[in-house]
């Protein structure tokens, strides 16, 4: 496909890789919103990103920033700064980047799945939930207009192995935060430091309408497990989701009424869709024809 014409997706910051993915003198080609890009780290350490044509000719140069362990660019003129995740400044947290995984699905489907608590016992059996403890108790979900984010709060769910550092099944508290349409983080009970929250996040690079690369990361308090242990745990959870994500229809997230049947547990998803609709986002959505 060719570069999207969706102004909402174009005029926003999007992830294009991990900081470690870009080494000096090794230009990398990638895709963003249907557009080919080349990114290269120059001698002075700065990364330059350019849109390129089908024939490889260099077109316009794109703004770049390196933040949250990842590299961000935009194909347009963002109306606002890149979102903030203040917990990145807490130096005693362990940061673990899990690398980019390609998913043949809309990036929005990936974000929606991340927000869904109901699937835990069925897809992440014995880790994030198990039958018969499948009830999703009532919780709060809202669009926070002041920060232009979607939040879900007051969530409690029984989990068998909520985090690698967790021992034994227990009720785990959750908060969800959608910081921009393709980027989301969750806060969950920290087994090692009850006064803090562990953070897991997904930055999704929308390559095409039906294809994305998803960078998962963790920002946790965990003195027991190695970085590799944590990567394996997170990748295991994510690859359990992939089989579901790649088989969802329609491919785009439907933003029209009556497209899918929802239940009470899908509150966050419904707020997310409402927020996308208010923004007028088109990329990765299914518009009624």
């Amino acid at each position: 496909m060719t570069k999207t014409t969706d102004p909402v997706a174009i005029n926003d910051w999007q992830v294009i890789g991990r900081i470690d993915d870009f080494l000096k003198g090794q230009p990398k080609q990638t895709r963003l919103l249907g557009q080919s890009l080349v990114a290269e780290r120059h001698k002075n350490g700065d990364i330059k990103v350019h849109e390129i044509s089908e024939l490889g000719e260099t077109l316009r140069s794109c703004p770049v920033q390196e933040k949250f362990g990842h590299v961000w660019t935009t194909l347009g003129k963002p109306k606002r700064e890149l979102f903030d995740i203040p917990e990145f400044q807490q130096i005693d947290r362990k940061y673990v980047g899990c690398g980019g995984v390609m998913v043949k699905a809309s990036a929005l489907r990936v974000v929606e799945n991340f927000l869904d608590i109901g699937h835990f016992p069925y897809v992440h059996t014995d880790f994030l939930g198990s039958e018969p403890l499948t009830e999703v108790k009532d919780y709060k979900a809202e669009i926070r207009i002041d920060v232009d984010e979607v939040w879900a709060d007051d969530i409690s769910f029984h989990q068998d192995k909520a985090m690698l550092s967790a021992t034994g099944g227990k009720a785990v508290e959750y908060m969800y935060r959608v910081v921009s349409p393709f980027n989301t983080v969750l806060y969950k009970t920290c087994p090692e430091k009850p006064e803090e929250w562990d953070i897991i996040g997904l930055f999704a690079q929308p390559l095409e309408e039906n294809l994305c690369r998803v960078y998962a990361f963790m920002l946790v308090f965990d003195s027991q497990n190695t970085e590799t242990d944590l990567i394996h745990f997170q990748q295991m959870i994510f690859f359990q989701d992939i089989i579901i994500l790649e088989n969802q229809l329609p491919v785009g997230v439907p933003l029209y009424d009556g497209a899918e049947r929802s239940i009470k547990a899908d509150k966050t998803q419904l707020q997310f869709r409402k927020w996308l609709k208010q923004k007028g986002l088109q990329f990765g959505t299914d518009q009624e024809t």
């Binding site: 897809v123 059996t125 014995d126 295991m236 690859f239 359990q240 992939i242 089989i243």
Partner: peptide
């Protein structure tokens, strides 16, 4: 393993259900 899910609700040859392990 991730990507090879169990047969949901299926019983094995001994008539018992599986869990993740």
């Amino acid at each position: 393993m991730p990507g090879i899910p169990p047969l949901h609700g299926m019983k094995n040859n001994e008539g018992k259900f599986f869990n993740q392990e």
